[in-house]
Nucleic acid binder design. Structure first.
Lengths: 177, 177
DNA sequence: ACCTGAACACCGTTCAAGT
DNA sequence: ACCTGAACACCGTTCAAGT
């Protein structure tokens, strides 16, 4: 299907900005990646980004949406093995973009857009975890606390880089609890 | 004992800067508290701060040292009640300066000074927790993982504001594990 | 030794103008 | 509708100079 109206559809340019932002945010961090460097990487003038996005945080939200919708689909594909293995899988997946995770947490206060995204993500993650614990037959009164402890542990594993073996031991201890 | 040499000892001025920084960092956050506003609050010119501190992160380190050396002493004073209560106490103490905690985590990568402080703090905290679990008679092979999970849970409680009742339930579930 | 006014290089964002 | 060059207000930090 040939392009008829333009050399480049507007959505493609937007996607290029998001792709460039993903690369820069993951490789160097959100703050280190200035709007002018992001613009250069995407092949536009700095202020052109403001045509597509309200501000820098909205660019981040677009990156987050693209990143995690794909991974969430992957998660649903993997077979329901033991709980320790699933926790480790999630920690390692998120670990590949741990800079993004850290940035989200550090910008919660300043940016309502990031805050809203973060709450959606947590609500979804906790709902999935809760369903798994129910299905595993955990006593109902323990579930809510264990959901939180599991989430906090995954966040801890992301924030502090630990050797793979130690990560594994922690996930195993948590699954056994 | 009367002051003999100056109107004001140099250490007092330094302390005033640290005190002003503590107030601003806790109330408004590290990034929102600019060096010029900090200088105004301390009653000096912006660049005067650089006479006492290498950079803004060193000011933060001074604030952290002053803040946590006092609280650590308090912790050692409280009687060894049950583990859940101790966890909750720590979470609530740190919760009063949760902005500082968040700032430390968000500046680990950029600032070697903050990073060094953070590692000292974690080493100390983990050593204390390890000793408590040993004394409580926990099986040695479980201790390391439980130390990490406890630390991560406290950090999680700080990062996400939860109702007191839910915090209590989480600490109880963790102590029972 | 201690402190300052003025400047520097950078940042995210906005504006008026072009097509 | 889409994109830009130039400017704005701000930031942490440095410099040369004063006492």
């Amino acid at each position: 299907m040939a392009r008829t109206k333009r050399d480049q559809a507007p959505e493609e340019k937007r996607d290029e900005i998001v792709a460039a932002a993903r690369t820069l945010f993951v490789a160097e961090g959100y703050e280190a990646a200035s709007m002018s460097r992001l613009a250069t990487a995407a092949g536009v003038a700095p202020n052109t980004i403001y045509w597509y996005f309200r501000d820098k945080d909205e660019v981040l939200v677009a990156v987050l949406d693209a990143e995690f919708s794909a991974r969430m689909a992957d998660y649903l594909q993997i077979p329901a093995t033991d709980r320790a293995e699933r926790l480790l899988w999630v920690a390692n997946q998120l670990g590949q973009v741990s800079r993004l995770v850290g940035t989200v947490h550090s910008r919660l206060e300043k940016s309502p857009a990031i805050n809203a995204w973060h709450e959606r993500f947590h609500a979804l993650s906790e709902a999935m975890l809760r369903a798994e614990l129910q299905q595993a037959g955990m006593a109902p009164e323990r579930i809510e606390a264990m959901v939180k402890i599991s989430i906090f542990t995954i966040e801890g594993l992301l924030a502090h880089q630990l050797p793979e073996q130690e990560k594994r031991a922690i996930c195993a201890a948590l699954a056994a609890a």
